[in-house]
């Protein structure tokens, strides 16, 4: 188990580092998706099936594609002419990544006290997740859903507006 964990951790870290350090933007995006997949397998290693598969479905399947599209549509996909694999601003990237990591790490560590300390890992089935989402957490779920709907409608309105301008 721990052996598999170290391999997955190494892959995830390598993907994350490559995403920060590489020069070619599309390579960075692909590296990010490797990191996403590594994370998903780490979730699976923790018996969190739903989280793991959702991670692959949403992040590898959708978010990575979105990132790639964004890169291709904003012309930063041109291959840098000068040699070298690593980005010239790799240090800045690393610093930003470390800062984000520090913030998240601090948040997680400071909230450890609030988590229930259970010795055995409970087996969480999809059914239980569904019941939790539809029962006690239905209000947050609905708020998130509303937010996403508003965002979608907003995006559509922005897109339509631009189109009319073009005419």
């Amino acid at each position: 188990m721990s052996f598999v964990f170290y391999i997955l951790a190494a892959i995830t870290l390598a993907g994350g580092l490559a995403a920060v350090l590489l020069k070619n933007m599309v390579h960075c995006a692909l590296a990010v998706s490797i990191a996403f997949a590594g994370l998903a397998f780490l979730f699976l290693g923790l018996d969190a099936q739903f989280a793991g598969f959702a991670q692959i479905l949403v992040y590898v399947g959708a978010v990575a594609i979105l990132v790639v599209f964004a890169i291709l549509l904003t012309r930063s996909s041109d291959t840098p002419k000068d040699g070298g694999v690593f980005s010239r601003t790799w240090l800045a990237g690393l610093v930003v990544a470390a800062a984000v990591f520090a913030v998240i790490g601090w948040a997680v560590l400071s909230s450890v006290g609030g988590l229930p300390h259970e010795a055995a890992v409970p087996t969480v089935t999809v059914l239980q997740i569904g019941q939790a989402l539809m029962g006690p957490y239905v209000l947050p779920l609905e708020i998130v859903a509303l937010l996403l709907t508003v965002a979608t409608i907003g995006a559509v309105i922005v897109a339509i507006h631009e189109k009319e301008d073009a005419k």
Partner: peptide
């Protein structure tokens, strides 16, 4: 999840 990764 596996089907989604073919897109990439």
């Amino acid at each position: 999840a596996m089907g989604a990764s073919t897109e990439l």
